[in-house]
Amino acid sequence: MRVEARILLLLGAFFGAMCVVYWFWGHEDAGSIMMLGGTLLGFLPGTYYYYWSRRMTPRPEDRSDATLEEGAGVIATFPGSSIFPFLLGMGAFLSVLSMVFGVWLAIPGVGLILWALLGATAESRRGGVH
């Protein structure tokens, strides 16, 4: 986890340095703000990972001498299959088309999005389909 944190922090630091140089050299607002956004994107997750990397023992995937046995046990749960990503995608599709072909298309579009969000949440609590 420490290497992951360092990568993000180094990228953030480089973007930050670039942002400072650009602002004082060019006095241009849009680019400076966007580079500041890039700096934050490096630092926000980077500091989070760095904070935790100092408080946890290295994970088996962080250690070059780790054996497969050390990673034994359930590592995660994965949904076998789900219709809700498809429904959410179709809802987003209709909503975007409503911007062009008529607001009425947003009614089924938003309806599908809500159905999919509620369904996916319920599926997560229930356990879904194998």
Binding site: T67, L68, E69, G71, A72, G73, V74, I75, A76, T77, F78, P79, G80, S82, E123, S124, R125, G127, G128, V129, H130
Partner: peptide
């Protein structure tokens, strides 16, 4: 790590269990 992932149906086991032959 489970809390970082989508909770749902199928639990994937990790990367193998103890085995005399590590290869």
């Amino acid at each position: 790590m489970t809390d970082l992932l989508e909770p749902s149906s199928l639990s994937a086991d990790s990367h193998g269990h103890s085995d005399a032959d590590h290869n």
